[in-house]
Design a protein around this nucleic acid. Structure first.
Length: 420
RNA sequence: GUGGGCGUAGCUCAGCUGGUAGAGCUCCUGGUUGUGGUCCAGGCGGUCGGGGGUUCGAGUCCCCUCGCUCACCCCA
């Protein structure tokens, strides 16, 4: 590969045969699962007004601060390749007046997303997500439903080493108050903290819980927890979600340190991870966002959703990818005994007739000799080969190694009837 | 943005203390003047990621750079 060869942009991937089939399999399983639960598919644009993500995802998030693919179109509008799916689906919900529909409005989506990050295992600049969003109800049963769907999706796809963690963030007010309390706690113990934790006290104090440093961990074991600062109503909501999951025998852990990175979450948050993955172990996650629709200009509407990464589902899945079977039922070869490719012309007509008759057929397209054409047909796995030589037509049974002269009609009938 | 590892044929890789690039697989052709699988023979295919330096001589040593990859940050 020479230096001037153009490659796929960093962090992007060509999905060849088996990989493309694997993606399609995930999409099909997800589509069936969501349909069975009454979710309607939505396809929103790949790019949106930049403002949607700034307002929806949150100005202070990593996504908005440094990960967006933002560009201006011909008339100077600022557009952004979608970095996540919730804000666009919310925009569509508002734009199409879906709050007038009977609640809850349940939607699912699938497609590529874009974030400008350094790629690593399970993380790409263009990645695929499947997700679901449900609007119009604050009932804990809806929380439990979304969590159950994410778990089912992982099960459907044979994802190994799965752990479900849940938590509640409460309202944004109680979270803000808690964050201040935690900052004060961290400052009081500043000398015992690892330098990188100390540097993040203002920006992201909650990350201190993840520090691997032993002294920091000892401090954090005594730190106040957000779960203990929940309002009575939020605590009751969280308890109801836990009870529903328990009754449904969905295994989960309560993780008081689970804090999803996007600003819009309220109350229930959850994440499904897999031990089969590398550093990026999250397979999917989501949470409730009861204020987002309002923030985006819609009527006050409670809502909850989740997204799962296709690449990560696949990495953690035990199912082996297999390419789609492309073996033709009929391969059409021909001799070269007549001038101006007359045999090829008849072969081409036969190919068209075969396709019209519903037979998966391929024709020799590289001018191979009959010997090489048969070798090629064999490699493709074609059970039958039609051989045109002069005015003669023969049908060869590749498995039996026998062939006989026949008419076009007989040939098509033999293959249509003799299929597995 | 930062750090580690790795860049030799389409793929998987070998290449010794520096001596002027190989194998297997794939693909194409012939052996079989019109017939597949096995076998045999031949062929296509590399600015050894790129640039500079040291040297009589660099795939090999040094520097820079680009790319891939894993990890940090953060997330799907």
């Amino acid at each position: 590969m020479s230096a001037t060869t153009i490659r796929a942009p960093r962090g992007t991937l060509d999905l060849l045969g088996p990989a493309a089939a694997a993606h399609e399999r995930v999409r099909a399983r997800a589509a069936a699962l969501f349909a069975s639960a009454g979710y309607e598919q939505v396809e929103t644009p790949i790019f949106e007004a930049t403002e949607l993500f700034v307002r929806g995802v949150g100005e202070a998030t990593d996504i908005v601060e440094k990960e967006m693919y933002t560009f201006e179109d011909g008339s100077g509008r600022s557009l952004t390749l979608r970095p996540e799916g919730t804000a666009p689906v919310c925009r569509a919900y508002i734009e199409h007046g879906m709050h007038k529909r009977p609640a809850p409005v349940k939607l699912w989506y699938w497609g590529p997303f874009f974030r400008y990050e350094r790629a690593q295992s399970g993380r790409y600049r263009q990645f695929f997500q499947v997700g679901a969003e449900a609007f119009g109800s604050a009932d804990p049963a809806l929380d439990a439903e979304l969590i159950a769907l994410l778990v089912s999706l992982a099960q459907e796809l044979d994802v190994r080493g799965v752990t479900l963690r849940i938590a509640s963030l409460g309202t944004s007010e109680s979270r803000a108050a808690y964050r201040e309390e935690l900052r004060a706690f961290l400052r009081a113990h500043e000398t015992e903290l690892a330098p990188e934790v100390r540097a993040r006290i203002d920006a992201n104090p909650l990350r201190a819980f993840d520090a691997k440093d032993a002294r920091t961990a000892a401090v954090m074991a005594r730190a106040p927890l957000l779960l203990d600062r929940l309002s009575a109503a939020d605590a009751e909501h969280f308890a109801a979600v836990r009870e529903l999951l328990g009754e449904a025998h969905i295994a989960f852990e309560i993780d008081p340190r689970l804090v999803r990175g996007l600003d819009y979450y309220t109350r229930t948050v959850f994440e499904l991870s897999s031990s089969e993955l590398g550093a990026q172990s999250g397979v999917g996650g989501g949470g409730r966002y009861d204020r987002l629709i309002e923030q985006l200009g819609g009527p006050p509407t409670p809502a909850i959703g989740f997204a799962a990464g296709i690449e990560r589902l696949l990495l953690a899945s035990s199912a082996q990818p297999a390419a789609a079977a492309l073996a033709p039922a009929l391969y059409i070869a021909f001799g070269a005994g007549e001038p101006q490719g007359a045999e090829r012309t008849r072969a081409f007509a036969l190919w068209q007739e075969a396709l019209a008759a519903g037979i998966a057929a391929q024709i020799e397209l590289c001018g191979r000799s009959l010997k090489r054409a048969l070798a090629h047909a064999d490699r493709l796995g074609a059970p039958y080969v039609a051989i045109l030589t002069g005015q003669q037509l023969a049908l060869r049974d590749m498995r039996a190694g026998e062939q006989r002269q026949c008419s076009v009609r007989e040939l098509l009938a033999a293959i249509s009837g003799g299929e597995r």
